[in-house]
Amino acid sequence: GPREVTMKKGDILTLLNSTNKDWWKVEVNDRQGFVPAAYVKKLDSGTGKELVLALYDYQ
């Protein structure tokens, strides 16, 4: 199956793709996968990378 990404509340993840309104593709610890968009919030990183903050645990 697809590689699952797990996250804990407060984690910072790299946002790869947010074109789908329900599932965003993120990368964390060299793993890529989809997380519910409602579970993360975009951060203003000030760099080229888009980052998101995990609002809830997800696994």
Rank of each mutant, 00 (worst) to 15 (best):
N20Y: 07
Q59H: 13
F34Q: 03
V5M: 14
D44S: 11
A38C: 15
A37I: 04
L53R: 07
Q59Y: 13
A38R: 14
L53Q: 11
N20S: 09
K49M: 11
K49I: 13
T19C: 11
K41G: 05
T47Y: 11
G48M: 08
K8A: 06
L16P: 01
V35A: 02
V35N: 01
E27G: 09
D30I: 03
W23E: 02
R31M: 14
G1D: 11
A37W: 02
G1T: 13
K8I: 07
G10C: 04
V5G: 03
W24A: 02
L51S: 07
E4I: 14
K21L: 08
P2Q: 14
P36S: 03
E27C: 13
V52Y: 07
V35G: 01
K21C: 08
D44F: 11
L13W: 02
Y58L: 04
L43M: 08
G33E: 07
A54L: 06
K42R: 11
V5Q: 04
R3D: 12
K42M: 13
K42H: 07
L43S: 03
Y58F: 10
T14D: 04
L15F: 03
W23Y: 05
G10Y: 03
L55E: 04
S45G: 12
V26R: 00
W23P: 00
K49V: 14
A54N: 01
V35W: 02
V35R: 00
A37V: 05
Y56N: 09
S45T: 14
A54C: 08
V40A: 02
E27H: 05
G10I: 02
Q59I: 12
A37H: 03
L15K: 00
I12K: 05
P2G: 14
Q32P: 09
A38L: 09
D30K: 09
Y58I: 03
T14G: 05
D30P: 02
G46C: 12
G33M: 15
V28C: 10
I12A: 02
T14M: 08
V5K: 02
K25Y: 15
K8P: 01
I12F: 04
L13R: 00
L55A: 02
Q32K: 08
K41Y: 06
E4S: 14
L53I: 15
G48S: 09
G48Q: 09
S18P: 05
K41Q: 14
K49W: 08
S45I: 11
L16V: 12
L43G: 02
V35C: 04
P36A: 04
K9I: 07
G1Q: 13
N20Q: 08
E50T: 12
L15V: 06
L15D: 01
Y39V: 08
Y39P: 02
S18C: 11
V5I: 15
T19Y: 08
G48P: 07
R31I: 14
M7V: 06
L15S: 01
D30E: 11
N20C: 11
I12L: 07
Y39K: 07
T47D: 14
Q59F: 11
K21F: 06
T14L: 14
V52R: 00
L51Q: 11
F34G: 01
E4K: 14
D22S: 10
D22A: 08
K8C: 10
T19W: 08
L53A: 05
E50H: 10
N29Q: 09
S18Q: 09
L13E: 00
T6G: 08
S18R: 07
G33V: 15
Q32T: 13
T47L: 11
A38E: 11
T19H: 10
G10S: 02
D11T: 05
T47P: 12
A38M: 09
V28R: 08
E4W: 15
N29R: 08
K42C: 08
A54H: 01
K8E: 05
Q59R: 09
T19K: 09
G46P: 13
P36K: 04
L43V: 10
L16C: 05
T19M: 09
V5W: 12
L16G: 01
D11A: 05
K42F: 08
N17K: 06
D30Y: 06
L43E: 03
L55D: 01
V28Q: 11
V5T: 05
D57V: 02
L13F: 05
Q59D: 14
Y39I: 10
K8Y: 07
G1W: 14
L55N: 02
N20A: 06
T19L: 08
D22Y: 15
G33N: 04
E50S: 12
V35I: 08
T19E: 14
V5E: 02
E50N: 12
E4A: 15
D30T: 07
K49D: 09
V40I: 06
S18A: 12
T6I: 14
S45V: 12
K21S: 10
M7R: 00
G33F: 15
T6A: 13
V40H: 00
G46Q: 12
Q32Y: 10
E4D: 13
L15Y: 01
T14R: 10
K8H: 08
K25H: 10
A38T: 10
K8F: 07
V28D: 06
W23G: 00
R31A: 12
W24V: 05
V40F: 06
S45K: 09
V52F: 05
L51V: 09
P36R: 04
Y39T: 08
K25R: 10
Y58R: 00
E50A: 11
T19P: 03
L51I: 09
D30Q: 09
V35E: 01
L15R: 00
E50L: 12
L53K: 07
G10R: 01
F34D: 04
L53H: 03
G1C: 15
I12E: 03
K25D: 03
E27K: 07
D57Q: 04
K49R: 10
K21R: 10
Y56V: 14
F34W: 15
P2E: 11
Y56G: 05
V40Y: 01
K9A: 11
Q32G: 05
T6N: 13
L53N: 02
T6K: 11
N29G: 14
L13S: 01
V40M: 06
S18N: 08
M7S: 01
G46N: 14
K25G: 05
N29Y: 07
R31W: 15
F34T: 04
E4Q: 14
M7E: 00
S45L: 13
A54M: 07
P2A: 14
G46A: 12
V28L: 15
Y39D: 04
L16M: 05
G33C: 12
S18Y: 06
D11P: 00
V26C: 03
I12M: 05
G46T: 12
L13N: 00
T14E: 07
L55R: 03
Y39E: 03
D57F: 05
D57L: 03
L53E: 13
T6P: 05
E27M: 11
I12W: 04
P36C: 07
S18L: 04
K21Q: 09
L51D: 03
V35T: 01
V40C: 12
P2S: 13
L15Q: 00
T47Q: 12
V26H: 00
G48K: 08
A37G: 03
A38W: 12
Y56S: 08
T6H: 13
L16I: 13
V26L: 04
M7W: 06
A38Y: 09
N29M: 08
F34I: 06
E27I: 10
V5P: 04
K25A: 08
G10W: 03
D11Y: 03
D57I: 04
M7G: 01
D11W: 06
G1V: 11
G46K: 11
A54I: 05
T6Q: 12
E50G: 09
K8S: 07
E27P: 00
L43A: 03
Y58Q: 02
K42W: 09
G10Q: 01
R31Q: 13
G33P: 02
L15N: 00
Q32N: 07
D22N: 13
K9C: 06
K25N: 06
V28E: 05
E27W: 09
Q32M: 10
L51G: 02
Q32E: 10
N29D: 12
N17F: 05
K9L: 04
K49Y: 09
K21Y: 06
A37F: 03
F34L: 06
K41N: 05
N20T: 05
V52N: 00
L51Y: 11
P2Y: 14
K42A: 07
G10T: 01
L13H: 03
V5A: 05
D57P: 05
L16R: 02
N17R: 05
Y56K: 14
V40E: 02
D11N: 04
K42T: 07
S45W: 10
Y39S: 13
L13C: 07
K49T: 10
D30V: 04
G48H: 09
